[in-house]
Write a protein that binds this DNA or RNA. Structure first.
Length: 742
DNA sequence: GACCTGCTGCGGCTTG
């Protein structure tokens, strides 16, 4: 960014917008010693000052987005900030709200604009003071805003009567989620109670398709949202993908158990050795995908420090660690007084500012291109290059190695993701869900707010013009009937909806304010013996494989009500993969790119020697099986189908084949079906001939469709529709079915 | 075998 050495005016000669800020606000900018406003700050002034438009401010982390929103907002409030809350800021994290509170307080202090924060850790005294004399800016979480509706329902309109601005921070973190849907509903309900709209400002990291973000910010009128984008542009990127070989796990089955070995296996030591050698002495983030791996690598690196008689530089950071430990680690990284690297899960992907780091390490397959991009954004900010090192382990092949291992799908998927990252593509946020679980919450909340509502009013408020616009009147009636049967609702003689006994209990517990569920632990049982518990927040199928307690198991049955999963030891030789080929849902585009890499000959320059070897093996397997020419191959008693499509298509095909009585297992990009090839091809041909079914009909074999918090109260058919909209792609699956038969 | 986020009112205690 260039500076204006000839001028001490932060607005610069070209800026007319700066002069439209309140004199006191301009003075604050001068006292900060800023040479000029950043592009995004400049661009935001006029649209926010006018106060008639919704705005999205999109720029990379630490680009001054908060100030961009609040310089003009404070200019508007500088003369008079009283009477009611005048601006609401919604943040996804308490820590972020605390950060922003400190920053805003400095700006607002001289302007006599009160700043209040409101979340679970704020004392009741502070909250009571705001309720007594509401004024200025309120920083709040979606959950605390929910609590305000339920606890202060009748006082809400007065509390917010003079509200002029709503700011949503980290907008991208809300899009497509239950929590985001809850926030949309709460903001809509604020406007309903004020009987007017309030302009919204969304702050976000750079998003690919801005129209999705705009539609999220103002449902139904996304096209009218003003977009202010300050893409600082991709700087230089230094990239390396390092391959490692790992002993095949197939040798170890539950029948022939061994003593657990001490410490991590050799292969992790190799990865650890390189991490230690390259990261020590500087500041870095190591993303390790799971809490278990975070602990493993943090421990391994700490011991290397001890061995070298160095003070420890490596600390773990994940959601199960205490707040104190996490804050200590964050502070150490930010202080920059001595070298510190944090080994973390997604905790450090967004939110609080830890300053920029020298490099990013990713151990294992990245969850998605967009998260890779987000992680990369943490490195090399001040003009320097971003550095990304990817560490990938593939199993040593044996005579019984399953096809996905031979195909090195983890390595190839990672290369595909890096290639897509380099072309600046990344996955759009999820869309299409109905969010019935959050509709349960919002309906109960609406009733609690007003003491009772008519069904027609609720439909208008939540569905017709609210965030649940895709729910039809007929569906809403069925939905209400279902909630009535489950005693969440009751109806008075004049037709008013009231809370039923179960609804009353739900709403009166503080856990009701969050739209997302705490992960439920399932009890794992094998041969009548309880092995332990494990959290499941993903669909679970009979026949699925999992690893627990260092052993491999196959799911025999799922008892959703009792939260019990029955297991049997996985048969020897049928153990498919050492670790998941990717976490989360893989996009069509990534799998298409994988096929191109298998079929191609190019050697990406960022691969090390071992990774090149593994890629060569992958391509040799692809050639040997002639997968460039055919998508169905038989191997022993199994048939492998390669749709080269994303998880939604793979999952849909698996369910469709299961519905025809076949035993199907999905292994990353591959569907493995038991039986002769002719049967599988026959089944696929029959599917194509029948044509695509209604997506809901395929959910018959899904054991636990109720994944979101209140899904258990949602009528089965509506739940099936929500599930299909989130996880299935019938059109895509039938297109692929036609292709693989050619 | 993914990960992350959030939470009120009140009773009972100590301390100034």
């Amino acid at each position: 960014m260039s500076s204006h050495p000839s001028s001490s005016d932060p607005g610069g000669a070209a800026s007319s917008a700066f002069h439209r800020l309140h004199p006191q606000v301009r003075r604050w900018v001068w006292t900060q010693g800023w040479k000029e406003l950043r592009g995004i700050q400049e661009a935001a002034i006029v649209p926010i000052l006018e106060g008639t438009q919704d705005v999205i401010l999109s720029a990379s982390t630490a680009s001054g987005k908060t100030e961009a929103a609040f310089l003009p907002i404070c200019s508007r409030l500088a003369e008079d900030a009283g009477g009611s809350v005048r601006a609401i800021y919604v943040g996804p994290l308490k820590a972020l709200i605390n950060d922003q509170f400190e920053r805003l307080d400095g700006l607002c202090d001289g302007l006599h604009i009160p700043v209040h924060r409101w979340h679970g850790d704020v004392s009741q005294g502070h909250k009571a003071r705001l309720l007594q004399s509401p004024a200025g800016i309120l920083l709040i979480t979606p959950e605390s805003l929910e609590a305000l509706f339920i606890r202060q329902g009748s006082a809400l309109a007065g509390l917010f009567s003079g509200l002029e601005h709503i700011v949503i921070d980290e907008l991208h973190a809300f899009i497509g989620t239950e929590r985001g849907c809850q926030l949309q509903s709460l903001l809509h309900r604020v406007e309903l109670s004020l009987r007017r709209t309030v302009p919204r400002v969304g702050l976000s990291a750079t998003l690919g398709d801005m129209s999705l973000a705009a539609e999220f910010l103002r449902p139904g009128a996304g096209a009218k949202v003003r977009l202010c984008n300050s893409d600082s542009g991709g700087g230089e990127l230094l990239l390396q993908l390092r391959g490692y070989r790992k002993r095949a796990p197939d040798a170890r089955t539950p029948e022939e158990d061994e003593e657990p070995t001490d410490g991590p296996p050799e292969d992790e030591h190799d990865v650890g050795a390189h991490l230690f050698k390259t990261l020590r002495g500087t500041h870095n983030l190591v993303f390790a995908n799971s809490r278990a791996n975070v602990e493993l690598y943090a421990d391994l690196l700490r011991r290397r420090c001890e061995d070298a008689r160095l003070p420890n530089e490596f600390f773990p950071h994940h959601g199960n660690l205490s707040k104190e430990l996490r804050e200590e680690a964050e502070a150490a990284l930010k202080a920059k007084q001595r070298p510190v690297s944090l080994v973390c899960t997604t905790t450090l992907e967004m939110g609080i500012d830890v300053g920029s780091v020298q490099s990013i390490a990713q151990v294992g397959v990245p969850p998605s291109v967009s998260s890779l991009r987000q992680r990369l954004g943490r490195s090399g900010r001040k003009g320097g290059p971003s550095v990304l090192r990817l560490y990938l382990q593939e199993a040593e092949l044996t005579s019984t190695s399953p096809l996905p291992d031979q195909l090195r799908v983890r390595l190839v998927q990672s290369v595909a993701m890096l290639e897509l990252l380099l072309t600046n593509w990344f996955e759009p946020p999820a869309s299409g869900a109905f969010h019935f679980s959050t509709l349960v919450q919002q309906l109960l909340s609406l009733i609690a707010q007003h003491g009772g509502v008519k069904a027609g009013e609720a439909f208008l408020a939540l569905c017709h013009e609210g965030p649940f616009a895709r729910v039809s009147r007929e569906d809403f009636v069925r939905f209400l009937r279902g909630l009535g049967q489950r005693e969440l609702l009751s109806q008075s003689s004049d037709g008013t909806l009231l809370l039923g006994s179960v609804g009353e209990r739900l709403v009166n517990h503080y856990s009701f304010y969050a739209a997302f569920a705490s992960v439920e632990e399932f009890r794992l049982v094998a041969g009548g013996r309880t092995l332990g518990t494990m959290p499941f927040d993903q669909p679970l199928f009979v026949g699925a494989y999992l690893i627990f307690g260092g052993r491999r198991w196959r799911v025999l049955a799922v008892q959703g009500d009792e939260k019990v999963v029955e297991l049997e030891p996985a048969p020897a030789g049928r153990v498919p993969v050492f670790e998941p080929t990717g976490v989360g849902r893989v996009h069509d585009r990534v799998r298409e790119q994988m096929r191109a890499i298998y079929a191609g000959e190019g050697l990406p320059r960022y691969l090390d020697a071992r990774a090149l070897e593994l890629l060569a093996e992958a391509r040799a397997t692809f050639q040997r099986w002639r997968l460039g020419e055919r998508s169905i191959v038989a191997s022993g008693m199994e048939v492998h189908v390669f749709p080269w499509a994303g998880d939604a298509v793979v999952h849909t095909l698996a369910l469709a084949l299961q519905a025809r009585g076949l035993s199907v297992q999905t292994l990353g990009p591959v569907l493995s079906v038991a039986g002769p090839q002719a049967d599988v091809e026959g089944a696929l041909r029959a599917l194509v001939a029948e044509g695509p079914p209604r997506a809901e009909s395929l959910t018959r074999h899904v054991e636990n469709m109720a994944l979101e918090k209140h899904d258990g109260f949602v009528p089965e058919d509506l739940l099936a529709r929500d599930y299909a909209a989130r996880y299935l792609d019938v059109e895509g699956a039938w297109r692929v079915a036609r292709q693989v038969l050619q």
